[in-house]
Design a protein around this nucleic acid. Structure first.
Lengths: 142, 142
DNA sequence: CACCTTCCTGCAAACGGTTCGCAACAACCG
DNA sequence: CGGTTGTTGCGAACCGTTTGCAGGAAGGTG
């Protein structure tokens, strides 16, 4: 996954929405793309800061909010702080380990079934489905 | 659902864990039991306050945390504030309406399938499964 | 390329939900 | 009923997040 085309994606997405391409947005996008799991705003800010010391926390929040709105990122509220990850089309099952705190993804096809069931049964128009599973990794380091 | 046996439940559960039965705990439990959907700590505090003006927010937080720990209540983080409801064994599907903000429960059997799938597939020991669905009520008041 | 407009940013202060420390209080035990 | 200790109310601290503002940079225009 070369950064090049990802970067192009970003610029297109921004321009398409009439937004400007700025350093802060580019850096936050890089950090987010390179993260292997969910990252908090503080983590993004810290990593972004390492690349460009001028980047501020509030810009990180504003940028992440923008990305979420544009469908580039996905926000989760799994613990007491929000976390973000690059958007992906997969049904989202988050396995939250209560020992090590890590958040794993799991590709459960049952989520699709659930979604279909909701579409049919409920008096509710479904937008997103998030599954949060608590427990612990079977071979948890702690 | 007479309050009497619910109250007895509470006292048993508290004593079983070596905790004291206090007015604050009784009142918070009543408020929680009578709520028809999720309530925030502020809401519990307000309603509890109406019955006993001496009850403080921090006690409400402490009490709700205790109830959650004892398995009497279930905590959710659906928005930016936490909410609680009396614990119930049902698989939990929360339909969060993005228009009116209400949280509905839905009895989706597909959740059981999901749980079974997770038990089998993943390298993960499942504790709780929470499904959060965003969208809007088909006949939403607004 | 220079200029102008408008959007973004950094900063610092405000905010809102939640937690904590402490002294007074009240449950439960004997 | 008196002693012990868990609980409470209070207020201040906390921490993640948001906001107002003035300066700065992006990008369109001539």
């Amino acid at each position: 996954m070369p950064l090049a085309w990802r970067a192009v994606d970003l610029e297109d997405a921004l321009r398409a929405g009439g937004h400007r391409v700025t350093t802060a947005r580019r850096v936050v996008w890089e950090v987010l793309s390179e993260a292997h799991d969910h990252v908090s705003a503080a983590e993004v800010a810290e990593r972004a800061h390492r690349r460009d010391a001028g980047i501020n926390v509030s810009s990180v929040y504003r940028t992440l909010a923008l990305f979420t709105e544009l469908g580039l990122a996905r926000e989760s509220r799994l613990g007491d702080e929000a976390t973000w990850e690059p958007a992906h089309g997969d049904a989202v099952v988050h396995l939250v380990c209560e020992r090590c705190g890590r958040v794993l993804h799991h590709p459960a096809t049952a989520v699709d079934a659930l979604r279909r069931q909701l579409d049919d049964d409920a008096d509710f128009v479904v937008d997103t489905v998030d599954v949060r599973v608590t427990g612990h990794c079977r071979r948890c380091p702690r």
